[in-house]
Simulated scan of single mutants.
Amino acid sequence: MRAALGLTLLMMLAACEGGGDPVQQALRDTAAANHSAATPETAEVDHSAHAPASGPTPGDRAFAASEAAMHAGMATASGETIDEAYIAKMIEHHRGAVAMADVALARSTDPEVRRMAQGVKDAQTREIAEMQVWKPAGR
Rank of each mutant, 00 (worst) to 15 (best):
I82Y: 14
G96N: 05
R107C: 04
T81R: 00
A49Y: 10
D60F: 06
R2P: 00
G6Y: 01
A104G: 08
P52E: 05
P52I: 00
S108L: 09
A123N: 00
A99E: 12
A137F: 15
L13M: 12
A99L: 10
A104S: 13
T42W: 01
L10T: 12
T109R: 15
E80G: 14
A101G: 12
A26T: 13
E41R: 15
A99K: 07
T42F: 02
K121F: 05
Q24F: 03
A97T: 11
S48N: 04
A129P: 11
A3Y: 08
A69P: 03
A65P: 05
H93E: 02
L105P: 09
H47M: 14
A123C: 01
G20F: 02
A62D: 12
Y86I: 03
V45W: 11
G19I: 06
H94M: 01
T8N: 07
E17M: 04
A77G: 11
E92T: 03
S66E: 08
P58W: 10
S54V: 06
G59R: 06
A104H: 09
E92F: 06
G79T: 07
R2C: 00
A43W: 10
E127A: 11
A117T: 05
V120N: 01
H93S: 02
A3T: 13
P111N: 02
W134Q: 03
V133P: 03
G119L: 10
T109M: 09
T42S: 15
A32D: 12
D83A: 15
A64E: 15
A97L: 10
A51H: 08
H50Y: 10
A75Y: 06
A106N: 12
E41D: 14
D110W: 07
S48G: 01
S36C: 10
A65M: 09
M116N: 06
V103N: 09
A62T: 10
V23D: 10
A64R: 10
R126S: 15
K135I: 09
M70R: 01
T57M: 08
V98Q: 08
H71L: 15
K121T: 02
G6D: 05
I128C: 07
A101N: 03
L10Y: 05
G18F: 07
L7S: 09
A137E: 13
E41T: 13
C16W: 06
M1H: 04
T109C: 04
R95G: 07
G20M: 04
P52N: 10
A64Q: 11
Q25V: 14
A49G: 12
I128E: 00
E84W: 03
H71R: 15
L10K: 11
G59K: 05
A129Q: 14
S78C: 02
T125L: 00
G59E: 09
E80H: 15
V103C: 13
M74G: 06
L5H: 04
M100I: 12
A14M: 06
A69V: 07
M11L: 13
P58V: 09
L9R: 07
L9Y: 03
T57Y: 06
C16D: 02
M74H: 03
P56W: 06
